[in-house]
Amino acid sequence: MMIVAGQSQSAYFLEEELPSTERSHTLSVLVDNEPGVLARVVGLFSGRGYNIESLTVSEIEHASHMSRITIVTTGRPPVISQIMHQLGRLVPVHKVINLTWAGDALERELALVKVAGKGEIRDEALRLAQAFNARIVDATLDSYVFEITGAPADIDRFVGLMKECGLVELARTGLAALARGKAGI
């Protein structure tokens, strides 16, 4: 399902038969990069009682001042559909795509994970980091900072293991996502 500003947005053609269970959806929103656009999107979610699990925003085309906002939200299909139409109503929004409905989208997140410890526990942290393809971006005699990129579930697993290996703190970027294949939005 895709909502494009200015196109006949008849739900008649867009709304598909959808499973009715509540699940998490990844929405990709192309917007004009102008002051307040993020506030409009976030305000819409809080004002109408929708949930945001993850939100990332960054400029993707400097010349045309376009940004991509990637939002992970949860709901039953009618609620997700309503969220998409409400987003489509905002003036600076060009397109809204539901990557979850579009198929098996690529979803990646980056995390920085700081662990501290000595001896056996420090060796174990290093071995696990290698197993997860995490890079060492900082090291002292009694600490590491790992950088890991992957699907959010992989990062969850890595962070879960690091809790046993002296996890000190954690920073995650939130989701970047694209549909597979050659087509762009």
Partner: peptide, 13 residues
């Protein structure tokens, strides 16, 4: 801006 509301419904509808 690119704001352009749809005006006509599809013939099939």
């Amino acid at each position: 801006t690119q704001y352009r509301p749809a005006v006509k419904a599809p013939d099939a509808a």
